[in-house]
Design a protein around this nucleic acid. Structure first.
Lengths: 200, 200
DNA sequence: TAAACTCTTGACTGATTGGTACAGTAGCTG
DNA sequence: CAGCTACTGTACCAATCAGTCAAGAGTTTA
Protein backbone atom coordinates (compact mmCIF):
# COMPACT_ATOMS: atom_id res chain seq x y z
CA UNK A 1 0.00 0.00 0.00
CA UNK A 2 2.99 2.24 -0.27
CA UNK A 3 4.41 4.31 -2.99
CA UNK A 4 7.96 3.19 -2.75
CA UNK A 5 10.21 4.47 -5.51
CA UNK A 6 9.02 2.71 -8.53
CA UNK A 7 9.50 4.25 -11.84
CA UNK A 8 8.79 2.02 -14.74
CA UNK A 9 12.28 2.51 -16.07
CA UNK A 10 13.83 1.33 -12.81
CA UNK A 11 12.41 -2.10 -13.37
CA UNK A 12 13.70 -2.61 -16.88
CA UNK A 13 17.28 -3.51 -16.01
CA UNK A 14 16.06 -6.17 -13.59
CA UNK A 15 13.58 -7.40 -16.14
CA UNK A 16 16.30 -7.71 -18.75
CA UNK A 17 18.40 -9.75 -16.39
CA UNK A 18 15.64 -12.12 -15.42
CA UNK A 19 14.61 -12.70 -19.03
CA UNK A 20 18.20 -13.29 -20.00
CA UNK A 21 18.66 -15.82 -17.25
CA UNK A 22 15.38 -17.67 -17.55
CA UNK A 23 14.03 -16.96 -21.01
CA UNK A 24 10.54 -15.79 -21.82
CA UNK A 25 8.67 -18.85 -20.62
CA UNK A 26 11.03 -19.59 -17.77
CA UNK A 27 10.63 -16.15 -16.26
CA UNK A 28 7.50 -16.56 -14.16
CA UNK A 29 5.72 -13.64 -12.59
CA UNK A 30 6.89 -14.91 -9.23
CA UNK A 31 10.50 -14.76 -10.43
CA UNK A 32 9.96 -11.40 -12.06
CA UNK A 33 8.40 -10.07 -8.91
CA UNK A 34 11.35 -11.22 -6.87
CA UNK A 35 13.89 -9.80 -9.34
CA UNK A 36 12.25 -6.40 -9.61
CA UNK A 37 10.97 -6.15 -6.07
CA UNK A 38 7.56 -5.31 -7.49
CA UNK A 39 4.30 -7.08 -6.76
CA UNK A 40 1.91 -8.18 -9.44
CA UNK A 41 -0.15 -5.07 -8.92
CA UNK A 42 2.74 -2.80 -9.72
CA UNK A 43 3.95 -4.93 -12.58
CA UNK A 44 0.56 -4.86 -14.27
CA UNK A 45 0.26 -1.20 -13.55
CA UNK A 46 3.46 -0.47 -15.47
CA UNK A 47 3.04 -3.21 -18.06
CA UNK A 48 -0.69 -3.73 -18.57
CA UNK A 49 -0.09 -6.35 -21.22
CA UNK A 50 1.95 -8.55 -18.95
CA UNK A 51 5.11 -10.37 -19.84
CA UNK A 52 4.89 -9.60 -23.51
CA UNK A 53 4.97 -5.89 -22.84
CA UNK A 54 7.80 -6.32 -20.36
CA UNK A 55 9.90 -8.05 -23.00
CA UNK A 56 9.08 -5.38 -25.55
CA UNK A 57 10.18 -2.70 -23.12
CA UNK A 58 13.42 -4.56 -22.50
CA UNK A 59 14.03 -5.03 -26.21
CA UNK A 60 13.42 -1.35 -26.82
CA UNK A 61 15.94 -0.42 -24.16
CA UNK A 62 18.50 -2.86 -25.55
CA UNK A 63 18.01 -1.49 -29.02
CA UNK A 64 18.45 2.02 -27.69
CA UNK A 65 21.65 1.14 -25.90
CA UNK A 66 23.13 -0.45 -29.00
CA UNK A 67 21.98 2.44 -31.13
CA UNK A 68 23.75 4.96 -28.94
CA UNK A 69 26.83 2.96 -28.02
CA UNK A 70 27.46 0.92 -31.12
CA UNK A 71 25.39 1.58 -34.22
CA UNK A 72 25.54 5.34 -34.23
CA UNK A 73 29.36 5.56 -33.93
CA UNK A 74 29.67 2.93 -36.63
CA UNK A 75 27.46 4.86 -38.99
CA UNK A 76 28.51 8.40 -38.24
CA UNK A 77 31.85 8.37 -36.46
CA UNK A 78 34.57 10.13 -38.37
CA UNK A 79 37.08 7.34 -37.72
CA UNK A 80 35.62 4.12 -39.04
CA UNK A 81 38.46 2.01 -37.76
CA UNK A 82 38.15 3.41 -34.26
CA UNK A 83 34.39 2.88 -34.30
CA UNK A 84 34.86 -0.77 -35.23
CA UNK A 85 37.41 -1.28 -32.49
CA UNK A 86 35.10 0.42 -30.04
CA UNK A 87 32.19 -1.76 -31.16
CA UNK A 88 34.12 -4.93 -30.46
CA UNK A 89 35.29 -3.74 -27.08
CA UNK A 90 31.90 -2.42 -26.04
CA UNK A 91 30.28 -5.62 -27.21
CA UNK A 92 32.71 -7.80 -25.31
CA UNK A 93 32.08 -5.73 -22.22
CA UNK A 94 28.32 -5.80 -22.68
CA UNK A 95 28.20 -9.56 -23.04
CA UNK A 96 30.71 -9.98 -20.23
CA UNK A 97 32.96 -12.03 -22.47
CA UNK A 98 30.23 -14.50 -23.23
CA UNK A 99 29.12 -15.02 -19.66
CA UNK A 100 26.05 -12.96 -20.38
CA UNK A 101 23.59 -14.20 -22.95
CA UNK A 102 22.27 -12.06 -25.79
CA UNK A 103 18.56 -11.85 -25.08
CA UNK A 104 17.76 -11.03 -28.68
CA UNK A 105 19.74 -13.99 -29.95
CA UNK A 106 18.16 -16.27 -27.39
CA UNK A 107 14.68 -15.14 -28.39
CA UNK A 108 15.57 -15.73 -32.02
CA UNK A 109 16.06 -19.45 -31.46
CA UNK A 110 13.12 -19.82 -29.05
CA UNK A 111 9.56 -20.66 -29.96
CA UNK A 112 8.58 -17.15 -28.95
CA UNK A 113 10.44 -15.86 -31.97
CA UNK A 114 7.28 -15.05 -33.89
CA UNK A 115 5.95 -12.83 -31.13
CA UNK A 116 8.98 -10.57 -31.24
CA UNK A 117 10.11 -11.26 -34.80
CA UNK A 118 10.06 -7.65 -35.83
CA UNK A 119 12.12 -6.39 -32.91
CA UNK A 120 14.59 -9.23 -33.26
CA UNK A 121 15.00 -8.63 -36.94
CA UNK A 122 15.36 -4.90 -36.42
CA UNK A 123 18.14 -5.36 -33.89
CA UNK A 124 20.24 -7.47 -36.21
CA UNK A 125 19.47 -5.53 -39.37
CA UNK A 126 20.58 -2.34 -37.66
CA UNK A 127 23.76 -3.97 -36.43
CA UNK A 128 24.74 -5.42 -39.78
CA UNK A 129 23.85 -2.23 -41.62
CA UNK A 130 25.83 -0.02 -39.27
CA UNK A 131 28.88 -2.23 -39.43
CA UNK A 132 28.65 -2.39 -43.18
CA UNK A 133 28.57 1.40 -43.34
CA UNK A 134 31.77 1.59 -41.31
CA UNK A 135 33.49 -0.99 -43.46
CA UNK A 136 32.54 0.88 -46.61
CA UNK A 137 33.94 4.04 -45.13
CA UNK A 138 37.15 2.11 -44.62
CA UNK A 139 37.27 1.86 -48.37
CA UNK A 140 35.92 -1.62 -48.85
CA UNK A 141 33.71 -2.84 -51.61
CA UNK A 142 30.02 -2.63 -50.70
CA UNK A 143 29.35 -6.29 -51.29
CA UNK A 144 32.39 -7.46 -49.39
CA UNK A 145 31.49 -5.12 -46.55
CA UNK A 146 28.02 -6.64 -46.38
CA UNK A 147 29.34 -10.19 -46.19
CA UNK A 148 32.02 -9.28 -43.71
CA UNK A 149 29.60 -7.49 -41.39
CA UNK A 150 27.13 -10.36 -41.50
CA UNK A 151 30.00 -12.63 -40.70
CA UNK A 152 31.11 -10.51 -37.76
CA UNK A 153 27.67 -10.28 -36.13
CA UNK A 154 27.17 -13.97 -36.63
CA UNK A 155 30.54 -14.72 -35.07
CA UNK A 156 29.66 -12.74 -31.97
CA UNK A 157 26.42 -14.65 -31.53
CA UNK A 158 28.16 -17.95 -32.10
CA UNK A 159 30.91 -16.99 -29.69
CA UNK A 160 28.35 -16.49 -26.94
CA UNK A 161 26.86 -19.90 -27.59
CA UNK A 162 30.17 -21.72 -27.78
CA UNK A 163 31.85 -20.01 -24.87
CA UNK A 164 28.87 -20.76 -22.67
CA UNK A 165 28.72 -24.34 -23.87
CA UNK A 166 32.40 -24.83 -23.09
CA UNK A 167 32.12 -22.62 -20.03
CA UNK A 168 35.22 -20.82 -21.22
CA UNK A 169 35.22 -17.03 -21.63
CA UNK A 170 38.53 -17.29 -23.44
CA UNK A 171 36.69 -18.70 -26.43
CA UNK A 172 34.64 -15.54 -26.63
CA UNK A 173 37.66 -13.33 -26.23
CA UNK A 174 39.56 -15.14 -28.96
CA UNK A 175 36.63 -14.64 -31.29
CA UNK A 176 36.64 -10.93 -30.55
CA UNK A 177 40.38 -10.74 -31.12
CA UNK A 178 39.95 -12.56 -34.39
CA UNK A 179 37.34 -10.03 -35.44
CA UNK A 180 39.67 -7.18 -34.49
CA UNK A 181 42.12 -8.57 -37.01
CA UNK A 182 39.59 -9.26 -39.72
CA UNK A 183 37.76 -5.97 -39.51
CA UNK A 184 40.70 -3.65 -39.05
CA UNK A 185 41.89 -1.55 -41.94
CA UNK A 186 45.58 -2.18 -41.71
CA UNK A 187 46.79 0.37 -44.17
CA UNK A 188 47.70 -2.62 -46.31
CA UNK A 189 44.32 -3.50 -47.76
CA UNK A 190 43.20 -7.06 -48.28
CA UNK A 191 42.83 -7.96 -51.92
CA UNK A 192 39.42 -8.90 -53.25
CA UNK A 193 39.92 -12.55 -52.39
CA UNK A 194 38.62 -12.35 -48.85
CA UNK A 195 38.94 -16.05 -48.15
CA UNK A 196 42.61 -15.83 -47.39
CA UNK A 197 42.24 -13.73 -44.30
CA UNK A 198 42.48 -16.59 -41.86
CA UNK A 199 46.07 -15.97 -40.92
CA UNK A 200 45.25 -15.24 -37.32
CA UNK B 1 -5.20 -49.84 -23.33
CA UNK B 2 -3.57 -51.29 -26.37
CA UNK B 3 -0.05 -52.12 -27.19
CA UNK B 4 0.28 -50.05 -30.29
CA UNK B 5 3.78 -50.07 -31.76
CA UNK B 6 5.75 -48.11 -29.30
CA UNK B 7 9.39 -48.67 -29.00
CA UNK B 8 11.21 -46.15 -26.94
CA UNK B 9 13.46 -45.28 -29.84
CA UNK B 10 10.48 -44.47 -32.07
CA UNK B 11 9.62 -41.55 -29.87
CA UNK B 12 13.01 -39.91 -29.83
CA UNK B 13 12.82 -38.21 -33.22
CA UNK B 14 9.49 -36.64 -32.28
CA UNK B 15 10.86 -35.65 -28.90
CA UNK B 16 13.84 -33.98 -30.52
CA UNK B 17 11.58 -31.99 -32.78
CA UNK B 18 9.29 -30.83 -30.03
CA UNK B 19 12.20 -29.77 -27.79
CA UNK B 20 13.79 -27.94 -30.69
CA UNK B 21 10.59 -26.08 -31.42
CA UNK B 22 9.51 -25.26 -27.88
CA UNK B 23 12.60 -25.55 -25.73
CA UNK B 24 12.86 -27.47 -22.50
CA UNK B 25 10.41 -25.44 -20.46
CA UNK B 26 8.09 -24.72 -23.36
CA UNK B 27 7.64 -28.37 -24.23
CA UNK B 28 4.84 -29.40 -21.91
CA UNK B 29 3.85 -33.00 -21.41
CA UNK B 30 0.64 -32.25 -23.26
CA UNK B 31 2.65 -31.03 -26.25
CA UNK B 32 5.04 -33.95 -25.99
CA UNK B 33 2.15 -36.36 -25.84
CA UNK B 34 0.64 -34.87 -28.94
CA UNK B 35 3.94 -34.90 -30.82
CA UNK B 36 4.82 -38.48 -29.96
CA UNK B 37 1.32 -39.88 -29.94
CA UNK B 38 2.05 -41.32 -26.51
CA UNK B 39 0.02 -40.82 -23.37
CA UNK B 40 1.56 -39.80 -20.09
CA UNK B 41 1.59 -43.37 -18.91
CA UNK B 42 3.65 -44.52 -21.86
CA UNK B 43 5.96 -41.56 -21.64
CA UNK B 44 6.71 -42.23 -18.00
CA UNK B 45 7.03 -45.91 -18.75
CA UNK B 46 9.82 -45.23 -21.23
CA UNK B 47 11.28 -42.23 -19.45
CA UNK B 48 10.70 -42.71 -15.73
CA UNK B 49 12.51 -39.49 -14.90
CA UNK B 50 10.26 -37.36 -17.05
CA UNK B 51 11.33 -34.54 -19.28
CA UNK B 52 14.89 -34.52 -18.07
CA UNK B 53 15.38 -38.11 -19.14
CA UNK B 54 13.69 -37.41 -22.46
CA UNK B 55 16.11 -34.60 -23.19
CA UNK B 56 19.07 -36.76 -22.21
CA UNK B 57 17.88 -39.47 -24.58
CA UNK B 58 17.53 -36.93 -27.35
CA UNK B 59 20.97 -35.48 -26.65
CA UNK B 60 22.48 -38.96 -26.71
CA UNK B 61 20.92 -39.65 -30.08
CA UNK B 62 22.08 -36.33 -31.46
CA UNK B 63 25.59 -36.97 -30.22
CA UNK B 64 25.51 -40.40 -31.83
CA UNK B 65 24.35 -39.03 -35.15
CA UNK B 66 27.11 -36.43 -35.20
CA UNK B 67 29.66 -38.97 -34.10
CA UNK B 68 28.81 -41.28 -36.98
CA UNK B 69 28.10 -38.72 -39.66
CA UNK B 70 30.51 -35.95 -38.83
CA UNK B 71 33.09 -36.48 -36.10
CA UNK B 72 34.24 -39.94 -37.07
CA UNK B 73 34.94 -39.09 -40.74
CA UNK B 74 36.72 -35.94 -39.61
CA UNK B 75 38.95 -37.88 -37.24
CA UNK B 76 39.56 -41.03 -39.21
CA UNK B 77 38.68 -40.39 -42.87
CA UNK B 78 41.65 -40.84 -45.18
CA UNK B 79 40.82 -37.63 -47.07
CA UNK B 80 40.72 -34.76 -44.59
CA UNK B 81 39.62 -32.24 -47.18
CA UNK B 82 36.72 -34.41 -48.29
CA UNK B 83 35.68 -35.01 -44.67
CA UNK B 84 35.58 -31.28 -44.03
CA UNK B 85 33.51 -30.66 -47.12
CA UNK B 86 31.19 -33.48 -46.13
CA UNK B 87 30.88 -32.06 -42.63
CA UNK B 88 29.76 -28.70 -43.92
CA UNK B 89 27.26 -30.20 -46.32
CA UNK B 90 25.87 -32.66 -43.78
CA UNK B 91 25.63 -29.89 -41.23
CA UNK B 92 23.80 -27.59 -43.60
CA UNK B 93 21.41 -30.38 -44.44
CA UNK B 94 20.93 -31.31 -40.79
CA UNK B 95 20.09 -27.77 -39.75
CA UNK B 96 17.98 -27.25 -42.85
CA UNK B 97 19.98 -24.19 -43.81
CA UNK B 98 19.29 -22.55 -40.48
CA UNK B 99 15.56 -23.17 -40.44
CA UNK B 100 16.10 -25.84 -37.85
CA UNK B 101 17.52 -24.85 -34.50
CA UNK B 102 20.48 -26.60 -32.88
CA UNK B 103 18.99 -28.05 -29.72
CA UNK B 104 22.36 -28.25 -28.02
CA UNK B 105 23.13 -24.64 -28.82
CA UNK B 106 19.70 -23.55 -27.65
CA UNK B 107 20.13 -25.40 -24.36
CA UNK B 108 23.53 -23.78 -23.93
CA UNK B 109 22.01 -20.31 -23.74
CA UNK B 110 18.98 -21.35 -21.68
CA UNK B 111 18.72 -21.45 -17.91
CA UNK B 112 18.60 -25.22 -18.13
CA UNK B 113 22.22 -25.20 -19.17
CA UNK B 114 23.46 -26.46 -15.81
CA UNK B 115 21.25 -29.52 -15.94
CA UNK B 116 22.76 -30.70 -19.20
CA UNK B 117 26.10 -28.95 -18.98
CA UNK B 118 28.14 -32.09 -19.40
CA UNK B 119 26.29 -33.29 -22.50
CA UNK B 120 26.37 -29.83 -24.05
CA UNK B 121 30.04 -29.47 -23.42
CA UNK B 122 30.76 -32.95 -24.74
CA UNK B 123 28.96 -32.25 -27.98
CA UNK B 124 30.97 -29.15 -28.74
CA UNK B 125 34.28 -30.49 -27.47
CA UNK B 126 33.93 -33.51 -29.73
CA UNK B 127 33.06 -31.32 -32.69
CA UNK B 128 35.97 -28.95 -32.23
CA UNK B 129 38.42 -31.78 -31.55
CA UNK B 130 37.36 -33.77 -34.58
CA UNK B 131 37.59 -30.77 -36.87
CA UNK B 132 40.96 -29.86 -35.45
CA UNK B 133 42.20 -33.37 -36.17
CA UNK B 134 41.16 -33.05 -39.79
CA UNK B 135 42.80 -29.65 -40.14
CA UNK B 136 46.03 -30.99 -38.69
CA UNK B 137 45.95 -33.85 -41.15
CA UNK B 138 45.68 -31.22 -43.86
CA UNK B 139 49.10 -30.12 -42.73
CA UNK B 140 48.20 -27.18 -40.58
CA UNK B 141 49.85 -26.11 -37.39
CA UNK B 142 48.17 -27.59 -34.30
CA UNK B 143 47.46 -24.27 -32.67
CA UNK B 144 46.10 -22.69 -35.83
CA UNK B 145 43.95 -25.73 -36.43
CA UNK B 146 42.49 -25.40 -32.96
CA UNK B 147 41.58 -21.77 -33.40
CA UNK B 148 40.21 -22.35 -36.87
CA UNK B 149 38.02 -25.23 -35.78
CA UNK B 150 36.66 -23.27 -32.82
CA UNK B 151 35.95 -20.49 -35.23
CA UNK B 152 34.11 -22.77 -37.64
CA UNK B 153 31.87 -24.36 -35.02
CA UNK B 154 31.11 -20.98 -33.59
CA UNK B 155 30.26 -19.63 -37.02
CA UNK B 156 27.76 -22.42 -37.63
CA UNK B 157 26.01 -21.69 -34.35
CA UNK B 158 25.99 -17.99 -35.05
CA UNK B 159 24.69 -18.60 -38.55
CA UNK B 160 21.69 -20.44 -37.14
CA UNK B 161 20.92 -17.55 -34.81
CA UNK B 162 21.35 -14.83 -37.42
CA UNK B 163 19.57 -16.57 -40.26
CA UNK B 164 16.60 -17.24 -38.00
CA UNK B 165 16.61 -13.69 -36.71
CA UNK B 166 16.63 -12.32 -40.24
CA UNK B 167 14.38 -15.13 -41.42
CA UNK B 168 16.76 -15.62 -44.31
CA UNK B 169 18.28 -19.04 -45.01
CA UNK B 170 20.67 -17.43 -47.47
CA UNK B 171 22.57 -16.00 -44.51
CA UNK B 172 23.19 -19.51 -43.26
CA UNK B 173 24.21 -20.75 -46.67
CA UNK B 174 26.66 -17.91 -47.16
CA UNK B 175 28.26 -18.73 -43.84
CA UNK B 176 28.67 -22.34 -44.91
CA UNK B 177 30.16 -21.27 -48.23
CA UNK B 178 32.54 -18.99 -46.40
CA UNK B 179 33.63 -21.89 -44.23
CA UNK B 180 34.16 -24.06 -47.29
CA UNK B 181 36.66 -21.49 -48.48
CA UNK B 182 38.36 -21.00 -45.13
CA UNK B 183 38.70 -24.64 -44.23
CA UNK B 184 39.67 -26.04 -47.62
CA UNK B 185 43.23 -27.05 -48.27
CA UNK B 186 43.74 -25.37 -51.59
CA UNK B 187 46.95 -27.06 -52.58
CA UNK B 188 48.50 -23.62 -52.15
CA UNK B 189 48.83 -23.52 -48.39
CA UNK B 190 48.51 -20.31 -46.46
CA UNK B 191 51.80 -19.38 -44.94
CA UNK B 192 51.76 -17.99 -41.47
CA UNK B 193 52.28 -14.49 -42.77
CA UNK B 194 49.08 -13.80 -44.66
CA UNK B 195 50.28 -10.63 -46.31
CA UNK B 196 52.58 -12.61 -48.59
CA UNK B 197 49.85 -13.77 -50.94
CA UNK B 198 50.48 -10.60 -52.92
CA UNK B 199 48.39 -10.48 -56.02
CA UNK B 200 50.07 -7.22 -56.89
C1' DT C 1 -4.89 -72.38 -20.72
C1' DA C 2 -2.80 -69.62 -17.20
C1' DA C 3 0.35 -66.80 -15.35
C1' DA C 4 3.81 -63.19 -16.21
C1' DC C 5 5.24 -59.34 -18.46
C1' DT C 6 4.91 -55.07 -21.21
C1' DC C 7 2.71 -51.41 -22.49
C1' DT C 8 -1.44 -47.94 -22.41
C1' DT C 9 -5.03 -45.26 -20.71
C1' DG C 10 -7.02 -41.53 -18.33
C1' DA C 11 -8.46 -39.76 -14.07
C1' DC C 12 -6.39 -37.58 -10.31
C1' DT C 13 -3.28 -34.53 -7.33
C1' DG C 14 -1.15 -30.56 -5.54
C1' DA C 15 1.49 -26.89 -7.15
C1' DT C 16 2.12 -23.15 -10.16
C1' DT C 17 0.98 -20.54 -14.12
C1' DG C 18 -0.46 -15.66 -16.12
C1' DG C 19 -3.78 -12.55 -15.25
C1' DT C 20 -7.78 -9.82 -12.79
C1' DA C 21 -10.06 -7.21 -9.24
C1' DC C 22 -10.10 -4.34 -5.76
C1' DA C 23 -9.37 -2.13 -1.54
C1' DG C 24 -6.07 0.74 0.43
C1' DT C 25 -2.38 4.15 0.92
C1' DA C 26 0.78 7.67 -0.14
C1' DG C 27 1.79 11.99 -2.39
C1' DC C 28 0.33 15.78 -5.19
C1' DT C 29 -2.87 19.56 -6.49
C1' DG C 30 -6.29 22.65 -5.40
C1' DC D 1 -8.06 20.49 4.21
C1' DA D 2 -10.42 17.61 0.22
C1' DG D 3 -10.06 15.09 -3.69
C1' DC D 4 -7.51 13.01 -7.22
C1' DT D 5 -4.13 10.10 -9.27
C1' DA D 6 -0.49 6.82 -8.91
C1' DC D 7 1.11 3.08 -6.98
C1' DT D 8 0.90 -1.32 -4.01
C1' DG D 9 -0.46 -5.68 -1.72
C1' DT D 10 -3.31 -9.53 -1.82
C1' DA D 11 -7.02 -12.50 -2.51
C1' DC D 12 -8.69 -14.83 -6.18
C1' DC D 13 -9.42 -17.13 -10.77
C1' DA D 14 -9.41 -20.71 -14.45
C1' DA D 15 -5.97 -23.07 -16.86
C1' DT D 16 -2.17 -25.70 -17.05
C1' DC D 17 1.81 -27.79 -15.13
C1' DA D 18 4.67 -32.29 -14.02
C1' DG D 19 3.97 -36.32 -12.16
C1' DT D 20 1.31 -40.63 -9.92
C1' DC D 21 -1.45 -44.51 -10.02
C1' DA D 22 -4.58 -48.33 -10.47
C1' DA D 23 -6.79 -50.86 -13.70
C1' DG D 24 -6.80 -52.97 -18.10
C1' DA D 25 -5.32 -54.82 -22.65
C1' DG D 26 -2.21 -57.31 -25.55
C1' DT D 27 1.76 -60.33 -26.00
C1' DT D 28 4.92 -63.78 -24.53
C1' DT D 29 6.14 -67.66 -21.93
C1' DA D 30 5.13 -72.02 -19.79
Amino acid sequence: MARMVAERSDAIASLAEVFREHGYEGASLALIGKATGLGKGSLYHFFPNGKEEMVRAVLAEIEQWFEDSVYSPLRDGDDADAAITAMLDETAKYFRSGRRVCLVGALAVANTRDLFAQAIRGYFVAWVDALQAALVRQGRDTEQARLLSEDAVLAIQGAIVLSRALDDPAVFQRAIDQLHARLAFNGEMLDNNASGSGSL
